Computed example of a mutant assay.
Amino acid sequence: MTINTKVNDKSYEVDVEPRKLLSDFLREDLGLTGTHVGCEHGVCGACTIMIDGHAIRSCLMFAVQIDGSEVETIEGLQKKELGLELKEAFSKHHALQCGFCTAGILMSAVEFLYEENHPTEKETREMLSGHLCRCTGYEGIVSAIQEVAEKNNEGR
């Protein structure tokens, strides 16, 4: 099937197999390997990307389902201000170790920070409940997201 989509602000018209997973399409066909594949059941959150502004698990969708949509992966997020702020805060708070889960967490954090003006620590932890990280214990991740939320709300 032929799909038309925009990924990280670049337009594509490509033929894809109807049963090809979106995560595989991004990694194999477009070379966007920042989207990690962990559990392949939507449980770990490592494959989280943004479709039309919403965080989704790319291992639970077929590539044909993004026809007509705008997709953002971690590679695109790194070029945006909020992505850079999160990257700096994650580094400052030692919020990553092996890094496998980080891309998915960052993508969910972006949607979360767009939706929540003043998130509480509890709300941040609830958002993170859909992501598995075996290295950090989440403390640094929560601190980093909270710092970016506070910084973005100064003067509002």
Rank of each mutant, 00 (worst) to 15 (best):
S58R: 11
S23T: 08
E28R: 04
L96D: 00
E116G: 09
T35C: 09
V110M: 07
S143K: 14
N8E: 11
R27L: 00
C98W: 15
C98A: 12
V110H: 02
S23F: 09
G99T: 10
T124C: 10
A144R: 06
H36Q: 12
F100V: 00
L106H: 09
N8F: 15
M1R: 07
T120H: 14
K10T: 13
Q97F: 15
Q78K: 11
G99W: 05
A63P: 05
S11P: 05
A95W: 01
C59E: 02
N117H: 14
R57F: 08
I66L: 10
T2W: 10
L21K: 04
V7D: 04
G68H: 15
M127L: 15
A144D: 12
F90K: 08
E116D: 13
H41V: 14
K10N: 09
L86N: 03
G38Y: 06
G104S: 08
A89C: 00
H36S: 05
G83Y: 03
Y138R: 09
Y12P: 03
H131C: 11
H41K: 01
G31A: 06
G42N: 08
F112H: 01
E154Q: 15
S58Y: 04
M1T: 12
E81D: 07
G38R: 11
E121K: 02
H41I: 06
G155R: 11
C47F: 12
E70V: 08
A89M: 03
R57V: 03
I66C: 00
H36F: 03
V43W: 03
D29K: 00
K80F: 00
S23N: 09
Y12G: 07
L77V: 07
G31T: 06
V7C: 09
F25W: 13
D29F: 13
A95R: 10
S143L: 11
E126M: 11
R27I: 01
L21S: 09
Y138T: 15
G68E: 13
G53R: 05
V7R: 09
K6Y: 02
K87D: 11
E147A: 01
L128R: 02
T136P: 12
T48L: 00
A63S: 00
F90E: 04
G76Y: 02
S143Q: 14
K79F: 10
G45K: 10
G83K: 03
D29T: 06
L26S: 03
E147C: 06
T33W: 05
L32A: 06
G83N: 05
T35S: 02
C98I: 02
E28W: 08
N152W: 08
G104E: 04
G38M: 06
E81Y: 05
A103S: 08
A109C: 12
H41W: 11
R19W: 13
Q78D: 15
T5E: 06
D9W: 13
D67W: 10
L128E: 01
E116P: 02
T136S: 14
L77Q: 01
D15L: 11
C135G: 15
G83S: 05
K79I: 04
E123C: 14
H94A: 07
I3C: 01
D24N: 00
I3R: 01
C47A: 10
S108L: 05
T2Q: 11
A55H: 01
T33G: 03
I145S: 05
P119V: 03
E81F: 04
R27M: 02
C135N: 13
L113A: 09
K122F: 15
A95L: 12
D29A: 10
F90I: 07
V16Q: 05
Q97V: 07
P18F: 12
